[in-house]
């Protein structure tokens, strides 16, 4: 995995396009055409279709009856309470889980980067939680946090710690904590792997230089490792945030959306699949899609600026 994000050179100023350029561009277009068509088929068409569905209402009472309603479905979603509740809850989940995953992932990557016996094995083993199907891990967490019978609640009460008599998945706040925990457990290894790749391209010479200048270990981490690691951390953050904002399986299995854990995707699913409100559900899906897109663009803009600064400093 490449970990340096350098800008691909400065773009030329406005200038006439030469014939050779034009020909080259045509060739480029011809060469990319098959993949563009494929993309249009697998991505643009379904999204366009969903967009069309979201502008209509489909009767749940009479088969085949529909009417065009323009932006009514969006207006209804944005003026109601359900969408905004799900919106806030999803961002709370994403914020908590992604920050924890980045901190723990960095720590894990630093450990895995040390030279020790069995490192290759450990690097593989660490990835195991990421290989478990989310629904399966969610059911396992549900069982562990069950009152009376669950492992976690039993251990907590045996040790006399607080939380043993809490109905974790039936309580506001606690339920969100379990969902965040389940997500952190599963995807921290993924973040660690990306950050580890970033660590490995930092040359030993940089550290030697820092040492010669009298930097302590902590200073070397703070002023050498972290800045050079930033692109990798940003990449991990983007991947994880986009995933977290689309979360569905964890709340669906653990709480069914109760206790302030209903996510944007869950809300769309309920409208679409359970209530067969195709237009309303599609509008919610498009809103979710737009939210995730806006967040990634903002992220990349913000992070991109940083990366350019880093690149300038390096020069």
């Amino acid at each position: 995995m490449a970990t340096k994000f350098l800008s691909p050179g400065r773009r030329g100023t406005s200038r006439g396009v030469s014939g050779r350029d034009r020909e080259e561009r045509r060739l480029a277009f011809r060469m990319t055409a098959p993949s563009l068509v494929l993309m249009a088929l697998v991505a643009a068409v379904p999204i366009g279709y969903a967009l069309w569905l979201s502008l209509n209402q489909y009767s749940v009472r009479t088969a085949g009856l529909s009417r065009f309603v323009g932006l009514d479905n969006y207006v209804a979603a944005l003026t109601g309470t359900h969408w905004w509740a799900a919106f806030g809850q999803t961002f709370l989940f994403a914020g908590l889980s992604v920050s924890l995953e980045l901190v723990l992932g960095t720590a894990m990557a630093l450990l895995l980067n040390l030279a020790f016996k069995g490192r290759a094995l450990l690097r593989t083993v660490v990835l195991l939680p990421y290989a478990v199907v989310t629904v399966v891990s969610a059911i396992t967490w549900e069982t562990m946090f069950q009152p009376n019978l669950g492992l976690v609640t039993n251990v907590l009460s045996t040790l006399g710690l607080p939380g043993g008599d809490v109905v974790w998945l039936g309580e506001h706040g606690y339920a969100m904590a379990v969902i965040v925990l389940a997500d952190v457990w599963k995807t921290t290894p993924f973040a660690a792997l990306i950050i580890l790749a970033g660590l490995q391209v930092i040359s030993a010479e940089t550290y030697e230089a820092a040492e010669l200048d009298g930097a302590s270990k902590w200073q070397a981490f703070l002023y050498v490792t972290l800045p050079l690691l930033r692109p990798a951390i940003v990449l991990a953050a983007i991947f994880r945030t986009m995933d977290a904002l689309r979360v569905f399986d964890l709340p669906f299995v653990l709480t069914r959306g109760a206790n302030g854990t209903e996510s944007m995707s869950m809300l769309a699913y309920t409208e679409l699949r359970e209530n067969r409100l195709v237009g309303e559900g599609s509008a919610l899906s498009i809103l979710t899609f737009l939210t995730v897109m806006v967040v990634s663009v903002v992220y990349i803009r913000f992070a991109g600026g940083n990366i350019r600064e880093v690149a300038k400093e390096e020069q």
Binding site: M293, V297, A303, G304, I307
Partner: peptide
Amino acid sequence: MTLEKEANQAKEPLVDLIRPSSP
């Protein structure tokens, strides 16, 4: 996807991240 690509064109740094490449 198309929209994302459009955004891609609009802002230079986006290209940097999506297509991370060494000089």
